[in-house]
Amino acid sequence: GQVHVGDTTYHFPNPEEARKFAEKAAKENNLQVTQHGNTFKVE
């Protein structure tokens, strides 16, 4: 799974890890998570 936060892309071998990371980043920054397959975008 990939997580895009601003201009930075994080790669995770496990989509579940990617999702947890995205949700945590979104919560900390008052942002939203959008999911496209195994790619998550925090914005």
Rank of each mutant, 00 (worst) to 15 (best):
A25N: 06
D7M: 10
N29E: 08
D7V: 07
F21S: 01
F21Q: 02
T8D: 10
E16M: 08
L31I: 04
E28S: 10
G37T: 02
K24S: 10
G6P: 01
F12M: 02
E16H: 08
G1Q: 04
E28A: 13
A18Q: 01
F21G: 02
N30V: 03
N30T: 04
N29F: 14
N14Y: 05
T34W: 07
N29H: 14
R19V: 03
N38E: 05
K27L: 12
T9K: 09
F40W: 10
Y10A: 03
V33K: 01
E17W: 07
F40N: 05
H36C: 15
N29V: 07
N29I: 06
N30Q: 08
D7N: 14
K20G: 05
T34E: 05
H11Q: 08
R19L: 08
N29A: 13
A25H: 14
E16L: 08
N29Q: 12
Q2M: 14
A22I: 02
T8Q: 14
G37Y: 04
T39P: 01
P13M: 09
E43I: 11
A26T: 02
V5R: 03
G37N: 06
F12L: 01
Q35H: 05
G37H: 04
Q35W: 05
V5Q: 04
F40P: 04
V5F: 15
N30A: 07
N38R: 04
Q35I: 07
F21C: 06
N14M: 04
P13H: 08
Y10R: 04
A25I: 15
A26D: 01
E16Y: 07
F40R: 04
F40I: 06
N38M: 04
H4F: 12
Q32T: 14
T9Y: 11
E23R: 03
V3G: 00
Q35R: 13
V3D: 00
N38S: 06
P15E: 13
Y10Q: 03
P13D: 14
K41V: 15
N38Y: 05
E17G: 05
T9E: 07
N14S: 14
F12Q: 03
H4N: 09
A26Y: 01
K20T: 08
K41F: 15
A18T: 01
H11N: 10
K41R: 13
E43N: 07
F12Y: 02
F40S: 05
H11A: 06
K24I: 11
Q35C: 07
G1A: 15
T39Y: 11
G6H: 09
F21Y: 06
Q2A: 11
Q35V: 10
P15S: 11
E16I: 08
K41L: 15
N14T: 14
Q2G: 03
K24E: 11
N30L: 06
V33P: 02
K24Q: 12
K24T: 10
K27A: 12
F21T: 02
P13W: 06
L31G: 13
K27D: 06
G37S: 02
R19A: 07
N30E: 06
Q35N: 05
V5K: 03
D7E: 11
A18E: 01
K20H: 09
V3M: 01
T8H: 14
N38L: 04
F40M: 05
H4W: 13
Y10N: 03
E17D: 12
A26W: 01
V42S: 02
V33Q: 02
H11L: 11
K27E: 10
E43M: 10
L31P: 01
N14F: 05
G6N: 09
Y10H: 07
N14P: 01
F40G: 05
F21K: 00
G1K: 03
H4K: 13
F12I: 00
N38P: 07
F12D: 01
V5C: 14
E28Q: 12
K24L: 11
E28C: 13
G37Q: 04
T39Q: 11
T8G: 04
T9G: 02
F12R: 00
H4G: 04
K20P: 00
Q35Y: 05
F12A: 01
F40D: 04
E43C: 13
P15F: 15
H11I: 11
N14R: 03
N14G: 08
D7W: 09
T39F: 10
G6M: 07
Q32S: 12
E23Q: 09
G1I: 11
N29G: 13
E23M: 09
H11M: 10
V3T: 02
E43R: 05
A26M: 03
A26K: 01
P13I: 10
A22S: 02
N30H: 12
A22Y: 01
F21I: 02
F12P: 03
